[in-house]
């Protein structure tokens, strides 16, 4: 197993070095193993530095890449070492006009099967792969950690969630870690929606508003629950909505930059599969009866 990740790391290094040597990118954002074996994100600018580039551990870089691009000159081209989730997150950020895809060079890294299982990732590989081999994904219901949360009748489930969410210390870590959460101002900081100074956060207005704002954008990277200091499985709130979008509209966030969320469109442009609507809908316009 060690050799696999080593091999994929070498492949990534070769691609990164090539990009810098050909001057295809002005910098490569990746993890660097520094002194005392400290691993941290770093923008490599010289091909000579690439020897210190590492790919482990998993570190979502999408938001970091966004911040770097936003504070750089417009023509700055940044290459980013992306896993599947980073790749999808950057596509979603591009849809929201936070980054321009032309400025990004994707260096794709496929996760190992073990990592996919740990993250509950359905698609543990980016669109283009430069390092590693694509592994099959894991469906969220296959995993006991999630299925045990979602089973039972509503009252049981509500009691379970209420007990879990009562642990919340309202640190906003889930929001800050999320690669898609970029709104300024954020509703979770607004007294109208979330009462200030009350801990734990209210179940509905804090957690469900946060979850719903990401309903059609969540790329299931798991950054929110990895950031949670009291280990609330916040991503489990997203799975059912992701599945609903997939079943109803065949939509998965982050796969296609040109396709906007189906909930923003009407039934003519984004029809719901398996549902019949009266024939007169297809005529379009405001067909008043």
């Amino acid at each position: 197993m060690m050799t696999i990740s080593h091999k994929s790391m070498e492949e990534i290094r070769i691609k990164a070095r090539e990009l810098l040597e050909k001057k295809d990118a002005d910098g490569v954002l990746a993890l660097r193993r520094g002194e005392e074996a400290v691993v941290a994100p770093h923008v490599f600018r010289e091909p000579g530095e690439i020897g210190r580039l590492v790919t482990e551990p998993k570190w979502p870089l999408a938001k970091t890449a966004m911040r770097i691009l936003q504070s750089s000159p417009r023509d700055f081209r940044l290459a980013v070492v992306v896993r599947g989730c980073d790749d999808r997150a950057l596509v979603e950020l591009a849809k929201r006009n936070q980054v321009t895809e032309e400025n990004i060079r994707f260096i794709g890294l496929a996760c190992t099967e073990e990592q996919a299982g740990r993250c509950l990732c359905e698609r543990p590989y980016p669109r283009t792969i430069h390092g590693g081999k694509p592994q099959p994904g894991v469906h969220f219901l296959q995993d006991e950690r999630v299925s045990s949360l979602l089973e039972g009748d509503p009252a049981e489930r509500m009691a379970r969630w209420a007990a879990i969410l009562r642990r919340c210390i309202k640190c906003y870590g889930c929001r800050n870690a999320c690669p898609i959460c970029v709104c300024v101002p954020c509703k979770l900081e607004d007294d109208v929606w979330v009462e200030k100074g009350s801990i734990p956060a209210e179940m509905l207005v804090f957690h469900l508003i946060r979850a719903f704002h990401l309903s059609d954008a969540c790329v299931a990277c798991g950054a929110c629950q990895e950031a949670c200091p009291v280990s609330i499985p916040v991503m489990a709130l997203q799975f059912a909505m992701r599945q609903a979008l997939k079943d109803r509209y065949g939509y998965e966030p982050g796969l296609d930059g040109a396709r906007k969320s189906p909930v923003l469109k009407n039934f003519l442009e984004e029809p719901e599969t398996g549902k019949d609507y009266p024939a007169w809908i297809t005529h379009g316009g405001t067909g008043h009866e």
């Binding site: 969630w161 059912a240 003519l268």
Partner: peptide
Amino acid sequence: EANHAALKRLELVKVLLDTAGI
């Protein structure tokens, strides 16, 4: 056809409310 979008969105709200047990 704004109510199409409203229907789609609110049906997704139902999914979330179901997930949370409400």
